[in-house]
């Protein structure tokens, strides 16, 4: 009986969705705009109780959407799979953290400069590492991460292996996360916008053509080197800025938090899971991954298993749907319009 009723309700919902919803679902602007309004207003729930965990999960999603969208610029559009992209995360965190500890200027002010530092650094590194493609590039990106891990472990000025402890903010506990929430929300929106903009710009077209064939692209008059390196620097920018905010959120900056390969692996996996090379792929991938991770943590608890499940999910994705969720849906023409941003 109950199943009959639910079936009826389901049918009703489906009917309404079919009639009114298709416009809603296929309009590119309405749903994202609604989501943005809800996310902006979400902290209001703190007036009704302590929903710190929810706020944490949402802002954690913001962080990773920012990172995977940024990774997607070079990894998805450009085809350079970087397994050391959290170097920029660490650089941003350390830059702002150091200034905070030394001069007392809050990372909220220096975050955008931290992004610039990361981007500038990306520009320099890009000139060296982006000369190679494929497996060579992947390995060089891992090596980059290892070099930074050692450097920051040994660099006594910024605390060596112990890192730096940053001052807490003085807000009451239920409001202490809110500045980070809005900062990361802003960074997320900007990074998605950047990703969308690149996807539809001439620059993005050049970048995607480079990912297919560098020589042919060069022949058509694309300045391959500049485009690659610029894309790399752009993809570093918001990761660096997010790192600055994240350092402040954690209240400590340490090599074994920021310079671990698992963060890069997460960025890559989120992007591939959602569909690399699409604008909305990294967003969907990140949301799915974070739910998945929370589920694993709730059921299995142990953090060691986390890496197991991440790897497992990566293998399954690569083997069975390498185009990711958005890519696979798009291929079967099942992707609702509000997710189809190119």
């Amino acid at each position: 009986m109950v199943s009959n009723q639910t079936e009826l309700i389901m049918l009703g919902v489906m009917k309404i969705l079919k009639e009114k919803g298709s416009f809603l679902l296929n309009n590119k602007k309405i749903i994202p705009f609604l989501i943005l309004i809800v996310l902006t207003g979400l902290p209001i729930i703190q007036f009704f109780g302590n929903y710190n965990y929810l706020i944490h999960i949402v802002l954690f999603s913001f962080l990773y959407i920012t990172m995977s969208s940024s990774w997607n610029i070079i990894g998805g559009y450009g085809g350079f799979i970087s397994l050391g992209h959290n170097v920029f995360f660490g650089i941003g965190a350390y830059f702002s953290g150091f200034i905070f500890v030394r001069y007392g200027i809050s990372p909220f002010i220096t975050a955008l400069i931290a992004g610039l530092v990361a981007a500038l650094f990306g520009f320099v590194v890009g000139f060296i590492t982006l000369r190679v493609k494929g497996p060579s590039y992947i390995i060089s990106s891992i090596a980059l991460l290892m070099i930074f891990r050692i450097l920051f472990d040994r660099w006594e000025l910024i605390g060596g292996t112990h890192g730096m402890t940053l001052p807490h903010n003085t807000f009451p506990v239920e409001w202490s996360k809110i500045p980070h929430y809005y900062a990361l929300l802003l960074l997320m929106v900007l990074s998605i916008y950047l990703s969308w903009y690149i996807r539809h710009s001439k620059f993005g077209l050049a970048l995607r053509s480079i990912s297919h064939d560098e020589i042919k692209s060069a022949v058509t008059g694309i300045n391959v080197k500049i485009i690659k390196v610029t894309a790399y620097a752009l993809s570093a920018y918001f990761i660096g800025a997010a790192g600055a905010i994240w350092g402040d959120y954690l209240t400590y900056v340490r090599p074994n938090i920021f310079f671990i390969i698992l963060i890069a692996a997460n960025m890559v996996l989120m992007c591939i899971l959602g569909g690399k090379g699409t604008v909305t792929g990294p967003i969907i991938g990140t949301i799915v991954m974070i739910f998945f991770n929370e589920f694993i943590l709730a059921y299995f608890g142990a953090t060691e298993l986390n890496i197991f499940f991440t790897g497992f999910l990566m293998i399954i994705t690569l083997m069975y749907f390498p185009e990711g969720i958005v890519g696979s849906l798009k291929k079967r023409k099942l992707l609702p319009g509000f997710l189809d941003w190119g």
Partner: peptide, 26 residues
């Protein structure tokens, strides 16, 4: 698809690492 294959090996490494870490701890 050699890049994808590298990522596959990377995923494999994570899986084995996860199992070993879980069973024997670091």
């Amino acid at each position: 698809y050699s890049e994808m294959t590298v990522l596959l090996t990377f995923g494999t490494a994570m899986v084995i690492d996860g199992i070993l870490s879980f069973v024997f701890h670091n």
